Every structure is written in structure tokens, then in C-alpha cells.
Simulated scan of single mutants.
Amino acid sequence: MIDIGLSKMALIGVVALVVIGPEKLPKVARTVGTLLGKAQRYVNDVKAEVNRSMELDELRKMKENVESAARDVEQSVHTSAKDFEKDWNEVTSSINASGSDGTENAAPEYDWSTQSAVVPAYSHPRKNWRLKRGAVPQWYKSRTGVRTKAQSGAARVARFRPRKPL
């Protein structure tokens, strides 16, 4: 980093005063200041963009990890469901085989693997959005003289009625 002390800045100012002249120096100083400000803003924007892209990459990695974990859980659920159905069929067949009259009154097998999960559609909660969009700031109300507290007609008359001198 460049080490600029007070003495170096004074030397730069004297050289600028001699080279540029006292008439144009304030305008040049203003221009240099605005250019430095724009450069700082540009550098900050680039840093923010780099940080956003790094966070986005991290989020993508986390998403992939969560999706792979979900797939593993789904596979384990499917295998356990198949085992359960096999056990269920064995139990129901043994119960049906030991029935007293010998007729089969068991329900037909149901294939759970063909069912898909039903997910309800998203609906916006619509919490007083009209009130929020139409809200007027308090500072504007006080500046323009809008009444913010409701008062009955009788109370308003009593408030502005001239008082009797004592």
C-alpha cells in the first residue's frame, strides 16, 4: 500500500497549485474527488458481485447435498415399503389359508408404487396488502396537517370553543 503522509500530501498540493493554477484547482479537485468516489463504488460493486457468486456456488453445493440425501431416504423408504408389503402378503395369506370356511374374503392387493404425492398449489396469504400499499408515512401526515387521531364532532367543538374568562 502506498504510504501517503501529511508532508507528501502538502507537496502534491503545492505542485498542483503551481502546475494547474489557483483558478482551475478547485474544479480539478472536485473532478478528482468524484472520479475517486466512482472508482471506490465500482470496486465495492465488484467485491459484492464476487461475494454473491461465491455464496451462490455454496448454495448450489448445499442443494446438491440435500437432493442426494433426499434420494437416499426415498430409496430406503421404497425398499422398506417393498419388505413391508412382502411381509403383509405373507401374513394375510397365512390368515386366509387358516380361514374356517375356506373362501377368500381378502381385499385385492393395492400397488403403492404407482401413487404419486399430491402437493397442494401455493396460494399467497394476502395479508392486508392493500393497507400496506396505501399507507401514508407519519412524517408526511404531520407535515401536511392530516389528522391522525379520530375525534367526535362534539369533542372537536368542545376543544375549539372559546373559554369563559374567570
Score class of each variant (00 low, 15 high):
V19S: 08
I20Q: 12
P22C: 01
E23C: 00
E23M: 06
K24V: 00
P26S: 13
K27P: 00
A29G: 02
A29W: 05
T31G: 07
L35M: 02
G37A: 13
K38C: 02
Q40R: 08
Y42K: 09
Y42M: 05
V43G: 04
N44G: 03
N44C: 01
D45E: 14
D45G: 08
K47Y: 13
E49L: 14
R52D: 13
R52F: 11
E55P: 03
L59P: 02
R60Q: 14
R60A: 12
K61Y: 11
N65E: 08
N65W: 10
V66K: 15
S68W: 05
S68A: 11
A70F: 09
V73F: 14
H78C: 05
H78I: 06
T79Y: 07
S80V: 03
K82M: 10
D83K: 03
E85Q: 11
W88Q: 12
W88K: 04
T92F: 08
T92S: 11
S94H: 10
I95D: 06
A97G: 03
G99K: 09
S100T: 10
S100R: 06
N105K: 03
A106P: 05
A106N: 08
A107C: 09
A107P: 15
P108M: 04
W112G: 01
T114E: 14
T114S: 11
Q115E: 11
A117F: 07
A117I: 15
V118M: 04
V119I: 15
P120I: 07
S123V: 15
S123I: 13
H124F: 07
R126V: 13
N128E: 13
N128A: 08
W129G: 04
R130L: 02
L131H: 12
L131S: 10
L131V: 07
G134F: 01
A135C: 04
P137N: 09
Q138S: 07
W139C: 02
R143Y: 06
V146H: 01
T148I: 03
